[in-house]
Simulated assay, not measured.
Amino acid sequence: MTREAGGARVRRPPAERRAEILRTAMETFAERGYQSASLAEIADRVGLTQAGVLHYFSSKAGLLTGVLDLRDSTDIEELGSERPRGLAFLRHLVETTRRNAGREGIVRLYTVLAAESVTAEHPAQRWFRDRYQGLLALVAEALDDARALGEVAADVDSGTTSRVIVATMDGLQLQWLLEPGSVDMAEATEVAIVRLIGRDLPPAARH
């Protein structure tokens, strides 16, 4: 429940309250990391007790899972119902980095939690491992498609190239977070991909 002007207490719909907790947890984890953030801090930010937060999420780890699922759903929505193939998918990656420049909170959350997840028994370790495996598979498949379509040379190694592309994107995000004006993530990502595959990418779709 929250207070409106005059002190009246108003009960928030469960879905609305749950969404508020997730947004607040996302911001808190992005600022402080999972290990340093506490349920008490998140509860205080949304005007609840710890028990109140645990009414919606069974544990701090469960809250983290909800935050990661929320972040993941954003990327899925951007991808749309039909995934682009070949070089069009690599163009999609470039445009994703361009959009990320307008959502620092999500980028910071991902970067902080990804770094933390390499520690022993971190609750997000499996999520990040699965996500990297899935992303690498998507990029490698796009390169295989591009090779089959004659868009890139037959000797482009999809496995190694996909790893370099993903590592480049992650590294650029870190540089951008540390010094936002120092790098154009989209431009640098495109330059790296073009150098790796030896072909220009198709132009971005106009909306």
Rank of each mutant, 00 (worst) to 15 (best):
M1I: 07
A5I: 06
A8C: 04
R9C: 04
V10K: 15
A19N: 14
A19M: 10
T24M: 03
A25P: 12
M26P: 03
E31R: 15
G33E: 02
G33L: 03
A37F: 06
A43L: 05
D44M: 02
D44A: 15
V46Y: 05
L48Y: 00
L48Q: 01
T49H: 13
L54V: 08
L54A: 10
L54W: 13
H55S: 05
S58G: 07
S59I: 07
L63N: 10
L63P: 08
D69T: 06
D69F: 02
R71L: 02
S73E: 12
T74M: 06
E78I: 01
G80R: 11
P84Y: 02
G86S: 02
A88H: 14
L93M: 13
A101G: 13
E104F: 08
I106V: 14
L109G: 12
V112K: 03
E116S: 11
E116A: 05
V118C: 06
A120S: 13
R126H: 06
W127F: 09
F128Y: 11
D130L: 04
Y132M: 09
Q133W: 01
L138K: 15
V139H: 04
V139Y: 06
V139N: 09
D145R: 02
L149N: 09
A154Q: 13
V156W: 00
S158E: 01
G159K: 13
S162V: 04
V164Q: 08
A167V: 04
A167Y: 03
L172E: 07
L174W: 08
L174N: 05
Q175L: 07
Q175P: 02
W176R: 08
L177W: 10
P180N: 01
G181E: 03
G181M: 03
D184F: 09
M185P: 11
M185I: 07
T189L: 02
E190Q: 15
A192Y: 01
A192D: 03
L196P: 14
I197P: 14
G198M: 04
G198V: 00
L201R: 08
P202I: 00
A205L: 07
R206F: 04
H207G: 12
H207V: 10
H207A: 06
